[in-house]
Computed example of a mutant assay.
Amino acid sequence: MRDENKCPQDEVSFEINDMSINQLPTNYPLLIIHYDRKQLPKDTEERYCDCPSYMKLDDLTRSYFTVTENFLGEISLLIKPIINDEKRQSIFSRSTTRKIFSLLNSQYINHEGRSKVLEATRSLGEHICIDCIRHYQNPQLLKDNLEAAIRLPKGHFPEPAMQEKVLKTILLFLKRCHSITSGEDLVESMAQLVQRKDPYGILSSVHDIVHLLSIAPCCFQMVEQADSSSSIKLKPEFQNYESIRREYDSRIIKMTMSNGFCLSAEQWSYLFYRNMQHEFEMASIYQKLHTAQSFTTATELFYNMAKHAQDDPQTVEHLKGYFQLLSNIDLEKDASQWYQYTGALSLLKKVLNFLINLHK
């Protein structure tokens, strides 16, 4: 680890400006994950007397450095029994687990480092919110909400095998056929082709998927043929399965996000592929579509679900407020104000503790 500067999954930088890793303070919150806390030095001066960057700090900064370290250490203690217990690991989505370690890998020796801590805190807060939502969603409710968000009739969201079949058929069909002149023509011709192989029929799935790909910006284009006629083709950037599949997945995720629907990357992977192997791809799509409003949307969805499921409405109100405050973190301003900075870490610990207690 000492020779690495990046975490490959979340691209967390361990360096600050021109300060190398070896000049930074030892990361005791991270060590708590691996060692018994009793084995680690308790005295701050003993921990950092050989660290020049720490010894240069003024007394006030040192005191808040210690406060930060204590908060992160408490978070380490909260998650340690969970990540070491296979039966409890599902409390956190894998995205949330990575965000936790992004935070624990942070350095906070200066303003730049504290800004990174706040950025990691805000991001983790959003993922905790989504994990809380995940707790309240049963599979049928999840699918019903998804269909409503993308305006499909109930029961019309295609199964993963059907999604793959239709998309691959579109690719194959448009490569071979040169007489398709409209979207309706494409749907009808494809449905006839696929139904010959599938006696149960998939007309609605073909129609829904072609319609989704036709929404602006359209994935199709009219191409003039040698005989001066025109035919629908896929645009060049969508002429292989991987590219059209990513576009299809992205469009559904974008539509659901714009309609106030939140899922973890693992849930998206399961809905689209019935496995978790595509989780990183889903996380990448989500990150690309993420906006400043995304956390606010997740907070509202959490509140609407939790107030009907929790016996303690006051707790739900408090949590809504905590998530709202975390979503409004100002990286530049709050990193300069110790009260705001440590307050954000305190809020994070509270929402993390709530998520853990949901599963007790």
Rank of each mutant, 00 (worst) to 15 (best):
E4D: 02
K6W: 05
Q9E: 10
Q9K: 06
E11C: 02
E15P: 01
S20G: 01
N22T: 11
I32S: 04
D36M: 09
L40R: 02
M55K: 00
K56N: 13
T61F: 09
R62A: 07
S63K: 13
T66R: 08
T68H: 05
E69F: 03
F71D: 02
I82W: 05
E86P: 01
E86K: 12
T96M: 03
R98C: 02
S102W: 01
G113K: 09
R114T: 13
L118C: 05
R122C: 11
E126R: 08
C129G: 02
H156D: 15
P158L: 00
P158W: 00
I180P: 02
G183A: 05
L186A: 02
S189K: 06
Q192I: 05
Q192A: 13
Q195H: 10
P199S: 11
P199D: 03
I202A: 12
I202H: 14
S205I: 01
V223H: 12
E224M: 06
Q239I: 11
N240V: 09
Y241W: 09
E242R: 15
D249T: 02
K254N: 06
K254W: 05
C262H: 14
Q267K: 13
F272N: 00
Y273K: 05
R274F: 07
Y286S: 10
Y286N: 14
L289T: 01
Q293E: 14
F295M: 10
Y303S: 14
H318E: 04
F323C: 08
I329M: 02
K333E: 11
T342W: 13
V351D: 06
N353D: 15
